[in-house]
Write a protein that binds this DNA or RNA. Structure first.
Lengths: 236, 236
DNA sequence: TCAAAAGTGTTGGTTGTACACCCATGA
DNA sequence: TCATGGGTGTACAACCAACACTTTTGA
């Protein structure tokens, strides 16, 4: 156990659920930290690529298949004391997914439970205490904080907000994503102009919503842009 | 060898040497890839933290102590075939250092040689061929490319350019860093105004240069800012 | 006195924000 | 016809690129 260094992957899967930024967590069924919430993840198998291991663990523990939306590497964490089983280096991945198209998570593998939890609750100073009821196992609170921060920053200069939306979505739905992830209100008029002017951010489908209150809204699909020009500026 | 996953750290140490962006590389003394250039790095020891392992390998192989300047995690690479010895996951670190204050590198440990090489040469399409004389070992060309891209991006919105400069430097020296890393000419007048107006980027020391051509320049030290407001915009 | 480099002033175009205003639907 | 949300126009301020111009030194 102490003569070698082991490798795991962990996932920060974020979505917008019930008007709040939520993270996919599993209830650990095995020690250490049995009974605690944790990020889904597990040991990398020899010969297995890292994104492959991340996708496998996600499916095993939560029943969700390859995340539609977006998957990227977040960072690695390797402090010697971070896992009581020995020296374990973890490579964390960040996924942004539309909750509405992922199906309900259900526990499997080593997980006793699986579901969406508001990120704010798992990040609050209350849950920093290791004994708090919703304290995350290992250093997963720090990993989650880094993931949320990365997501917030990337909304500014990439079209990733669309990864939180279903395949077709309105400008107002996209705006709600920004408002929820950033935690600030945005001017609907200026927001509309900015996202529709940004090159290759949105492509109109020609269809509109029906049966809603107010004037029907155009439906869009995500465009091909990987970088936003000009960027969406976050109010200070 | 194939029953486990090993962990290494590798370093992309960048500096500005002889008016060009340069990277610190070592000539491998042991197989695999004996005789090839490679990024400094090596296996993480059990109980050792990742930045600690990075600093140790840098000192062992190049004789340079903890990099003055800046050190941050870059990314992790774990494709099964990237190392012929087995499945090896590496965590890459990016360092930006002032060449003038680091002393000359000298080989040690497993390294047969160590020195600065222009990044452009190691990144050119010529050296992509595995048989080219300056082809980097393993997937280190990819890692280097990611590191250079990270450095270029970070100059825009962080004060990291100062990490390439000695403790005291002039606005013109700082501008040369931007011009060399970005590969574009910048207007000296507008550059001067932007960096001196950015909050907490530069703090004047009161001293000036002497014995140079032209009017003496004020000397500055790096300020406390971690983010640039407003950012330095890279010309398209 | 000239060349060279540091540093300042000014101008015109672009971009972002605030907000007034019009449009299309359900009730 | 009113309330509700979708979408457009416009004015003002901030910002940035371009470049003329002044300052201070070494040769």
């Amino acid at each position: 156990v102490s003569g070698t260094v082991a490798v795991t992957v962990d996932l920060v899967v974020l979505s917008v659920v019930d008007e709040a930024l939520a993270v996919l967590v599993v209830r650990r069924g095995e020690p250490p930290y049995a009974g605690s919430w944790a990020l889904p993840g597990g040991f990398v198998r020899p010969g297995e690529d890292l994104p492959e291991a991340a996708a496998r663990e996600l499916t095993e523990e939560t029943g969700l298949s390859d995340p539609i939306g977006h998957l990227e590497q977040l960072a690695s964490y390797g402090a010697p004391g971070r896992d009581p089983r020995g020296h374990v280096v973890t490579i964390a991945y960040l996924a942004l997914v539309p909750e509405s198209e992922m199906g309900a998570p259900h526990a499997g593998g080593d997980a006793a439970d699986a579901g969406w939890q508001p990120a704010s609750r798992l990040l609050s100073s209350e849950s920093e205490r290791p004994s708090a009821p919703d304290h995350l196992a290992f250093d997963h609170a720090r990993i989650l904080a880094d993931g949320v921060e990365r997501a917030r920053a990337k909304l500014e200069y990439t079209p990733l907000a669309a990864a939180f939306c279903p395949a077709e979505f309105t400008v107002a739905e996209l705006r709600r994503v920004y408002e929820i992830v950033w935690g600030v209100p945005l001017d609907p008029r200026n927001f509309h102009r900015k996202v529709t002017n940004a090159t290759d951010f949105l492509v109109p489908t020609g269809r509109t919503t029906e049966g809603e209150r107010g004037r029907p809204a155009q439906l869009f699909r995500a465009g091909s842009a990987k970088l936003l020009h000009p960027p969406m500026l976050r109010p200070d």
